[in-house]
Write a protein that binds this DNA or RNA. Structure first.
Length: 754
RNA sequence: GAUCGUGUAGCUCAGUUGGUUAGAGCGCGUCGUUGACAUCGACGAGGUCACUGGUUCGAGUCCAGUCACGAUCACCA
């Protein structure tokens, strides 16, 4: 008899078990032959069951982590939830695909590599585009595997043979194909518009990549011709071209449509008074100065009233040549200088010192955003949003929890066009070429005033133009989220609609991700999926929350409360960590996790191990044949035995129901409770007497019951705690009908047995 | 400012079609265990389910309002 150690030590098992799984091929689903031969077809018609055609496939695309990223507890959470679904459906016999991959993460990766270069005394600009991109690829080769190695250590049973990277050849093809199709439909256009510009990252960013930070600053009330109005940024006054008031504001009724000369620090200038709903009559004096070049709102006002656009700040965040003595100053310096001059001229009425306002910062680098006019590419969102909204309204796409549907609708209703070009080097280069003769300077930005853009002769294609020497490709790359938006289908072979994976697994079953990227990612996937494939890319969206510490604080380095999933799983076991992340949490809500909770589930793993140890040792003590312990055999089960078995079957049924309804916490908690407080504390305790003193026949009956329940529990718990359950499965006596590996075993179900 | 969410035991949270004495883990108290169990078991204390009102035979659960906290969106007028 083999000695089973009295304690379960995860480290003795996990790595080995993972490699057994991986080698077994269990992670890779079988795709049935798409075009069945006539023989196969007739075989199917004749009703002979074929494992893969009988069941519908189940597919999840894994949200791709950043290539250069390091595994954090949030990854561990989504891996756990997705792995639970994957293992559950796989055990149910459905061909199950969980497709992993990584994201090139434009700005993030570029700045990481750039910083590393700067440490070495060089920089991205010094190297030039080509060399720099080579450097980033080297980084990707070197560090890109780290994150996927770490995903394995958390037990992710995903199909590594289908691993993808957003800059792979196939996915890049999908990106340019998508761009071209949208362009041809008029859904992508180029425009000179005021955009959110990050002077630090030196690129435009999308509206939803802007974050707001509270700041206390000065608020200047200035004399402005016949008006008095207030601003926190007097330096933008140099770019003013209008004053806006609300159409219903009686105070200014007679001024609307007239032009006034305004006294300014660089001499007098002319503004027009326009009536626009953007002006709130209740705020301040009800009149606002309009600086179309340096405010997105003002730009929109300018468009509505056909106002001139005057740019005075450049892409480095400095005052431009047309600002006279202020030229070259940073905006903050210029502000002080201008205020001083205005005070001398008596143009300042008063200054509020403690004005609370929000400043726009870049979500990547935290630098202050400087809206400037710039020529960028945009996606026309309205038509896409309408379809995407309908898909959720109709129930074609379900969001769990449901309340996020409202948030989703709100976003869709108030959507603005999406700026997709980025002035970066790392990413998908925009598949647009300009004809050299006509538009050498097509990318010149910062044109003064409202110079119209000449539409250059352009070529949009998935491959370069046939005579490339005459063309020059757009310098910019696409927003990372553009390629992410295609992820559920680009990874399956789209645009090749005949690709077997695409045909078989698309649309995917579930999209599991954090509620924080509902807009960035989920919404855009739905829009792109509907537009490009005519189908929503998934049927259900399951949103999880943020992982917080046990006091419900955000995890941060400065608080020192960051849980490193690799440390945790080394210390308590991956299974314990997984249980801690899943039990006691519900969709869309944040999760509090600390060592105490994880420890509790470490004990649970150990409990389960000892339950098994007890049952196995009792089997091996006797002379009973394993095949004689099957419930189908003639056994003298007591009434109690039958009740216990019935109770267990009820648990199995409920587990299935909970999992089908995405109630992972309830399933996990119920199994925990049953295993420990029912099976161990009652059923096993009561069995002891019969095992020690009962007749052979009675012993056999009890033992058969214990073994039956134990094996069932292992199956039910396997999606949650795959390692211990598999480790136990490896040492438990099995009958000939049972699978060697628990991962490939059938899901415990007893439909129609009673 | 708009919208959404949360408020249940000392702490972290479950409680999804309204139905008997409101649950778990951790923590706490008493006792017992070292022949499955880096422990484990038995028993226990602890709750006006934020507050007010309503619907109902019956409300933690549904409705209205109040308070507190949080999030998202909009905003540098």
């Amino acid at each position: 008899m083999k000695e089973i150690p009295p304690a379960y030590n995860p480290q003795d098992h996990e790595a080995q078990i993972y490699s057994i799984w991986e080698k077994s091929g269990a992670f890779t689903p079988e795709v049935p032959n798409e075009t069945p031969t006539s023989a196969e077809a007739s075989e199917r018609d004749s009703g002979s069951p074929s494992a893969n055609t009988a069941k519908k496939p189940f597919a999840i695309s894994m949200p791709p982590p950043n290539v250069t990223g390091k595994l954090h507890i949030g990854h561990a959470l989504f891996i756990t939830i997705q792995d639970i679904m994957t293992r559950y459906h796989r055990m149910k016999g459905e061909p199950t695909l969980w497709l992993p991959g990584t994201d090139h993460a434009g700005i993030a990766t570029q700045s990481v590599v750039d910083k590393a270069l700067q440490k070495k005394g060089t920089s991205r600009r010094e190297l030039g585009r080509e060399k720099f991109v080579e450097e980033v690829w080297k980084w990707k080769q070197q560090y890109g595997d780290e994150i996927t190695r770490q995903l394995r250590s958390v037990g992710a049973s995903c199909d590594w043979s289908r691993e993808r990277f957003t800059l792979d050849e196939g996915l890049s093809r999908a990106v340019s194909e998508a761009f071209k199709r949208l362009y041809d439909k008029g859904l992508i256009y180029q425009g000179l518009r005021t955009v959110n510009w990050c002077p630090k990252c030196h690129t435009a960013i999308a509206d939803d990549e802007v974050e707001y930070k509270k700041e206390t600053g000065k608020f200047y009330h200035i004399k402005y011709g016949p008006f008095t109005l207030a601003t926190a940024r007097p330096e933008t006054k140099l770019g003013d071209t209008a004053v806006a008031v609300h159409p219903s504001d009686k105070r200014y009724k007679e001024m609307v449509g007239k032009k006034y000369m305004i006294k300014g620090v660089l001499g007098d200038f002319e503004i027009e008074v326009v009536a626009d709903n953007a002006a709130d009559p209740k705020f301040g004096t009800g009149a606002i100065k309009v600086t179309p070049a340096h405010s997105l709102i003002d730009f929109e006002i300018a468009q509505r009233h056909n106002l001139p656009i005057k740019q005075v700040i450049d892409e480095n965040g400095r005052m431009m040549q047309n600002t006279g003595k202020y030229a070259g100053m940073k905006t903050r310096e210029a502000r002080e200088a201008i205020v001083e001059d205005m005070q001398k001229m008596g143009l300042i009425e008063k200054i509020d010192e403690n004005y609370q306002h929000n400043i726009a910062v870049c979500y990547r680098c935290g630098g202050q955003i400087e809206p400037i006019p710039s020529k960028q590419w945009f996606v026309k969102m309205r038509p896409l949003a309408e379809k995407a909204k309908k898909a959720v309204e109709s129930g074609e796409v379900k969001i769990v929890p449901k309340r996020f549907e409202k948030v989703y609708f709100q976003w869709m209703d108030n959507i603005r066009d999406w700026c997709i070009s980025r002035q970066l080097w790392w990413g998908h280069r925009i598949p647009v070429w300009y004809y050299k003769q006509e538009d050498q300077k097509s990318k010149v930005k910062n044109q003064n005033d409202n110079e119209k853009i000449e539409n250059p002769k352009i070529y949009v294609g998935t491959t370069p133009p046939p005579d490339p020497e005459n063309w020059i490709q757009d310098e910019d790359v696409l927003d990372t989220w553009f390629s992410s938006a295609l992820w559920p289908f680009s990874t399956l072979g789209w645009p090749d609609e005949q690709a077997s994976d695409y045909k078989y697994f698309y649309p995917t079953s579930v999209m599991e991700t954090g509620y924080d990227i509902l807009f960035f990612w989920v919404a855009r996937m739905v829009m792109m999926g509907l537009e490009l494939t005519d189908k929503p890319p998934f049927k259900t969206v399951y949103l999880h929350g943020l992982v917080r510490d046990e006091q419900n604080r955000k995890m941060s380095k400065s608080l020192g409360n960051v849980l490193d999933p690799l440390d945790v799983s080394a210390k308590f076991g991956t299974d314990a960590m997984r249980m801690a992340l899943v039990v006691g949490t519900t969709a869309g809500n944040d999760i509090a996790v600390g060592e105490g909770k994880i420890k509790g589930y470490r004990n649970f793993s150990n409990k389960l191990w000892n339950i098994a140890r007890f049952v196995i040792s009792n089997i091996e003590d006797g002379s009973i044949q394993i095949n004689d312990l099957e419930l189908s055999k003639d056994l003298k089960l007591s009434k109690q035995d039958e009740q216990d078995i019935k109770k267990f079957k009820e648990i199995a049924k409920k587990t299935t129901e909970y999992l089908d309804k995405f109630q992972f916490s309830r399933a996990g908690e119920m199994l925990y409770d049953f295993t420990w407080h029912e099976f161990a504390d009652k059923i096993i305790e009561q069995a002891k007497d019969r095992l020690n003193n009962g007749s052979e026949e009675d012993k056999r009956a009890v033992l058969a019951k214990l073994l039956f329940i134990l094996k069932g529990i292992l199956g039910l718990l396997h999606p949650f705690i795959p390692f211990v359950t598999e480790a136990i499965w490896q040492i438990i006596p099995k009958t000939s009908g049972e699978s060697e590996l628990l991962i490939s075993h059938a899901w415990p179900t007893y439909e129609g047995e009673d």
